[in-house]
């Protein structure tokens, strides 16, 4: 399943002592980076006479992290199996529309709207999974193909935002407890649930097994196909949740809300930034949450400093590649250690 696996050149030995190395797992690095970023950002913003982490700032970071966080949790699941999903962005648009149109301003239709959106999302995930496992198509191209099909449907059916979310449901997008948006707490709950699933359940172990080595997993009795399909269904459901959340925030569904924000590539970036191996088998949602928070914090700092939007992209690109290069170095050191001790 490791479609993106790139075999890497033989190990270089590292001079750093194993004990130190072990302490600096990618998750630790991510959160250290996040703290550093918050400190440096606070200083920079402070130099302008403003405060980064006041109530508005915290609200901002958490709000920005919410939508991306939920998609990225789903993306983590598929990437851990060695797959990936490029169709989430269009799926977010589609589910936001399905939810908003079903609700059509009626409080009574909130639940049916949510359920329909999630059911369709699960269906799309099932299709992704089946194309990858049964038709044995590469995940990159399979989900790109599904993304194009969804795009065709959206372009053909909608001429812009549609549907109407009842005000009661808009509270999901706007309510907060102190500086913490309710939706951000729900996002954290999704992260916690995914963490529990991945680390404490049998299907969770299977995801790591399939991502680590599909053949070995198959030989040891793991139903590899089912694992990949399940991961894709979960990923799409997460995208569906994001679409529903965005609908509540925007007051209606919008066909391109997911693609304009680039949630496909951005969620992948957040996952690898969080230390999950793109080839699968290693990583987890805790790191992903760190990656998402780093991206959201960067965005907020950029806004406070009024950085040129084009410069933001340069920084994002450099941060992404640097982070993954760091993890790769660490991993090589790990392997070297295992080989030579």
């Amino acid at each position: 399943m490791s479609t993106l696996q790139e075999n890497i050149s033989p190990a270089r030995q590292s001079a750093v002592r194993p004990a130190v190395r072990r302490r600096f797992t990618p998750v630790v690095i991510v959160y250290l980076a996040l703290v550093t970023l918050l400190v440096v950002g606070s200083v920079l913003v402070g130099l302008r006479g403003e405060v980064l982490l006041d109530q508005a700032g915290i609200l901002n970071i958490l709000t920005r992290a919410t939508a991306l966080g939920v998609v990225a949790v789903g993306q983590t699941m598929v990437i851990l199996t060695g797959s990936l999903d490029l169709s989430v962005a269009y799926l977010i648009g589609l589910t936001s529309l399905l939810a908003a149109e079903t609700m059509a301003g009626r409080e009574s239709m909130v639940l049916p709207g949510v359920l329909l959106a999630l059911a369709v999302a699960a269906g799309v995930g099932l299709v992704n999974g089946l194309i990858i496992t049964v038709l044995r198509a590469n995940a990159f191209i399979a989900t790109l193909g599904v993304a194009l099909i969804l795009r065709g449907y959206l372009e053909n059916t909608y001429t812009g935002p549609a549907g109407d979310v009842p005000r009661g449901f808009q509270h999901l997008g706007y309510d907060r407890i102190g500086p913490v948006p309710v939706a951000a707490l729900l996002m954290l709950a999704v992260v916690a649930l995914a963490w529990w699933y991945l680390t404490r359940t049998r299907p969770g172990y299977h995801i790591y097994a399939v991502g680590g080595d599909t053949e070995v997993a198959r030989l040891s009795g793991v139903p590899t196909r089912r694992v990949v399909i399940t991961a894709h269904v979960l990923c799409s459901v997460a995208a569906g949740l994001t679409g529903i959340y965005l609908a509540s925030r925007l007051g209606s569904g919008a066909p391109y809300v997911g693609t304009d924000a680039g949630y496909d590539l951005e969620s992948i970036a957040a996952v690898v930034l969080g230390g999950t191996l793109l080839a699968g088998g290693r990583g987890g949602v805790v790191g992903t949450l760190g990656g998402v928070l780093i991206l959201a914090t960067l965005d907020t700092i950029f806004d406070d400093l009024e950085v040129d939007p084009f410069f933001k992209n340069v920084v994002r690109g450099v941060v992404l590649v640097t982070a993954v290069a760091l993890y790769a170095r660490r991993m090589m050191a790990d392997r070297a250690r295992r080989r030579f001790t």
Binding site: E6, I8, S9, L320, V321, V324, A325
Partner: peptide, 8 residues
């Protein structure tokens, strides 16, 4: 730097 080309 051993970064997957997708990310690079």
């Amino acid at each position: 730097l051993l970064v997957p080309s997708f990310i690079v």
